[in-house]
Structure formats: C-alpha cells, structure tokens
C-alpha cells in the first residue's frame, strides 16, 4: 500500500517535471524563470521555496476539501478565492515569522519570498491538482515536482544565457531578451516531445 502510494507520488512528481512540465508546457512562472536564470545564485533557493509553498498550499487546500465536502461542489471561482487565500495566509505567516526571528539568512530569504511564492507556478499547483482529482499524496508530489521543474528550467535557461553571452555572432537585433526568448521557445519545443500539447489545452477555440 505504502509502496503503491510512493509510486503514485513519484509518478505525479515526474509528470510535473517532464510529461506536463509546468514551465515549458504550461508557460507558468515564465517571468520568474528568466529573472532567476539571469542571476547565477539563488535559483536553488527559488526552487526550494516554490516546492515547499506549492506542496503546502496544495496539501492544505486538499485537506480543506476533504474536511468540508461542500467545497467540492462550489463554483470554480470560489475555489480560486479559497486557494488564493490559503496561499496568502501561508505566505504572510511565514514572512511575519521570518521578519521577527533574527537569523543569518533572514534578509536573503525575505528578498526572494515575494517573487518565489506569489507567482503563477505556485498558484497553479492546487488548481491543477483539484482539476486532475489528485489525492493528498499526489498533490504534495505535484508541488514538489513544480519546484523541480522550476529548478531544471532555470538551470537550463541559465546555461543557455551563458552560451548566448559568449556568442559574439548573434546579430544586434537579437541580443539580450529576443535571443533568450527564442532559446526558451526551442527548449519548450523540446519538452513538447513529452506532452504533445499545451498543459491547458488552450487554443482549441478561436
């Protein structure tokens, strides 16, 4: 039973990293990825924060849905309000605690908290896991997978940026943001080999 649960969790995490890569197949956290990739340090902190907050938020939301069965039937926008509020409360509690407790990495963590926690990637995990009907262990695994997907994506884009910086042959009109975006596009194309489609199925309508 435990082994099956673990396998299901691993599958959910790997899905979030490869098969339904939330960054490249969903476009989530695109801004944060590129901003994190521009810096040489801090990417792992970002990824850890994303993992922790995604998993925690999604888990709390899932538990709330289990404890209050009525929540399953409410309209989607109330789910949004609920999940958004949970994330906000969690964020405020953690930040308040960090600002009150003095320790070495306090300033460093507070600096990254806003961008790392309040972004589309973290918010999407509880919404997606609700839509996919994940149970609690899989929900947590998906949150962890989101952080791993972010870490992988930012490392790949960071190494690409280094490559592009060394490349003096890039034409002037493509230097900087254009080349980075096209590089990211080709990375996203590579990951489409896993998914074959967009994460949100958007585009079927005109």
């Amino acid at each position: 039973m435990i082994r099956e649960q673990l396998m299901a969790m691993l599958t959910a995490a790997l899905y979030a990293v490869f098969l339904y890569n939330l960054v490249f197949s969903g476009g989530l956290g695109a801004t944060e990825i590129i901003r994190a990739a521009k810096k040489n340090g801090g990417m792992l902190t970002f990824s850890l924060l994303i993992s922790v907050f995604s998993a925690l938020t999604a888990a709390i939301c899932r538990l709330l849905t289990v404890w209050i069965p009525k929540l399953e039937t409410v309209e989607f926008q109330w789910h949004v309000l609920l999940y958004g509020s949970v994330l906000l409360v969690l964020y405020l509690i953690v930040c308040t605690t960090l600002s009150l407790v003095r320790f070495k990495a306090q300033a460093y963590l507070l600096k990254y908290m806003g961008m790392a926690v309040l972004n589309t990637l973290v918010m999407a995990v509880p919404l997606l896991s609700f839509q996919l009907g994940y149970n609690l262990p899989r929900t947590i695994a998906m949150g962890v997978g989101a952080g791993l997907a972010f870490a992988g994506a930012s490392l790949l884009i960071n190494s690409g940026m280094h490559l592009l910086q060394q490349n003096k042959a890039i034409p002037v009109m493509f230097t900087g943001v254009p080349a980075t975006l096209i590089y990211t596009a080709l990375l996203a194309l590579a990951f489409t080999g896993f998914t074959g489609s967009s994460l949100f199925g958007v585009g079927g309508e005109a």
Partner: peptide, 13 residues
C-alpha cells in the same frame, strides 16, 4: 528561427 537569430552556422545552440 534556429540558425539566423544565433549568428548562423557554427553558432546555433
């Protein structure tokens, strides 16, 4: 998309 924006032959990533 893959060659020209990155500088041509021997430069494409």
């Amino acid at each position: 998309v893959v060659k020209i924006p990155f500088g041509g032959t021997l430069s494409a990533p």
